[in-house]
Write a protein that binds this DNA or RNA. Structure first.
Lengths: 333, 333
DNA sequence: TGTTATTGCGCAATCGATTGTGCAATAGTA
DNA sequence: TACTATTGCACAATCGATTGCGCAATAACA
């Protein structure tokens, strides 16, 4: 069904049909009678105008590309949901791409989305390259979770540095000095900032960093597991481990359990990136909670400012610490 | 940049440019020399043809609509990932809709996606209405996770009945007779089948079902929590609880913990829908593991069969039981 | 009645790519 | 040389909706 067929059935022109259906009857002085006829017929046929034709003519698709490294990571799944809901309110739909944390896939995805003429892009980049992100001269883009230093691509992220600093200070306040940090993807801004916050807190508290390893290279359970195995081979165990995301934390727990050690008796554990089940783990897992709703909503708002031709402002939203039993005080009384 | 501009720059027609760029040079006898010129210029301009125009002309969008009740539920997030990857391999992109388990949103989403002329639909329906799903006369549709009895809309799902039967039989084999079942959304096929499996297993083992409550009404943490609170008010506690999805299970655990009770000493717990962190919970949570990759991949394959004009076959994939410490044997020695 | 204003709607171009058909120019053959 | 076959490419219509402009028909007014 097309407006042409509707028009034929009513013996009027497609022009008139189009104008009625787009609510421009007043502007173009379509008589109330004609307008009603059109609306009625459209309703009985359950007619919806072909958006492809519309998009072509209007040079606008009402579609946003959402690029995410791993939608099965609950952090991104939550983010995706917030974003989808926020965009739906504004009459935009979401074209979803999962890059599997692979820069090549990300690059390809950008190309595909631009060819489809999305109105804007929301990207949680893998983090290693940015050139392809600047291909979108005319298409506004907002980065989420990760960003690029010295590049002027706007971004919305957790204040990873602050969160990490707070987490580390908390561990130190509980008497921990030999703290190991299992990091995520190394060249990622989020990871860099978390590591910086970690190291800065150590220095600010005059901790000798000889024993404070940073190891790992990936936001995965496997990395948490593998890295912890390495840590546990060392005769001198760390008293606490700081896992830089929720998946790493799971791997760390698994490795500790398998080694027959206990959290927090043998090793304390704290994770960046709170999840609902953390309080039910054995033991309940202390975490830094990211303001996920805030990130999603702010990202959408920022994108819309760009779409309206305004300037975008970057945001770093503050996370909060949720202390739980997985961190034990080892202060001597 | 358009093929027209490319054509002008080379002083040839858009026809020729189009034919070269779509790889039809041979078919239409474009000389190797001309073809090369076109390819070179396209490369230097990083030209990619406008897909909107292409879609309109070809009456095909290479886009699949994916409708999901809750992308923040890890079950669906995982499914979405599998599906995205499988579709990408076949040169399709994904338009994502999160219905928030709301039939009205689902209905709206179907309309939006059809107006955008998606080539096909993959839908995990809320489950209460199906009429809107049949609007897609010409657009093939495959249901995932949930389906409609007596309707001929093809579906791919876990064999929920079998999984539930196995889970319940396992509990019974451990001596449990007073088993409570906290269910999800009542009118959902998945839920119905799980409850049927549960009740059938009880009957087959001649369990007096007077004490085997089925309560709850929603796939949410809150429902698990609330329903368990109700259960715990009763002086005669169940010896085991069967939670019908991962979110419900979390709520159940939380309520049990808050009541000062212990799993499995006071109550055993088993969950439908395994998650990676289940083995790290306190205690490790027994679960029925759904074949998620299988569901996603089969759904995509089935959709493609429909796209190729073939008949679709429904699938019910077998889940597996993963026994863990959360279920205790209460058999008298 | 003659003139101007207003009402109601349609013509045809446009968005960018694809494609059936056809027409020169060149090559091949007798 | 005359005629046919082949090569190489372009014309123009098409997909479905939108919109600037214009033209009748009717209304309003003098």
């Amino acid at each position: 069904m097309t407006i042409k067929e509707l028009a034929n059935e009513l013996n009027i022109s497609t022009t008139t049909v189009s104008r009625v259906l787009t609510g421009q009857e007043k502007k173009y002085r379509i008589s109330a009678k004609t307008a009603q006829k059109v609306k009625d017929l459209a309703k009985t046929h359950q007619f919806a105008p072909n958006q492809i034709a519309r998009n072509l003519r209007l040079q606008k698709t009402n579609t946003i590309g959402l690029i995410i490294p791993d939608i099965s990571n609950p952090f991104f799944a939550n983010l995706a949901r917030t974003i989808e809901v926020a965009l739906r309110k504004r009459n935009k739909m979401v074209l979803l791409c999962d890059t599997k944390d692979d820069t090549a896939v990300e690059e390809e995805s950008i190309g595909l989305l631009l060819a489809r003429k999305v109105d804007g892009l929301l990207v949680a980049p893998v983090g290693e390259k940015w050139e392809h992100l600047e291909k979108s001269n005319t298409t506004p883009i907002v980065l989420i979770d990760r960003y690029f230093e010295d590049k002027k691509i706007p971004y919305i992220t957790t204040d990873n540095y602050a969160g990490s600093y707070e987490a580390t200070s908390y561990l130190i306040s509980k008497g921990h000095q030999r703290i190991a940090c299992v990091q995520g993807r190394i060249n990622t801004s989020a990871n860099k900032n978390r590591v910086e916050g970690f190291q800065r807190a150590l220095r600010d508290h005059q901790i000798n960093t000889t024993h404070t390893l940073v190891l790992g290279d990936d936001y995965s359970v496997e990395n948490g597991y593998r890295s912890t195995k390495i840590l546990l081979e060392n005769p001198e165990l760390p008293t606490a481990i700081f896992a830089l995301n929720n998946q790493i934390a799971l791997g760390v727990m698994k490795a500790i359990n398998e080694a027959g050690l206990h959290i927090p008796e043998n090793i304390s554990l704290l994770s960046f990136d709170e999840q609902p089940y953390f309080e039910l783990l054995s033991p309940p897992l202390s975490a830094i909670k990211q303001p996920m709703e805030g990130i999603g909503i702010t990202a959408v708002e920022t994108l819309f400012e760009l779409l309206e031709g305004k300037r975008a402002t970057n945001s770093r939203l503050k996370p909060t610490l949720i202390p739980r039993a997985s961190v034990k005080s080892i202060l001597k009384p």
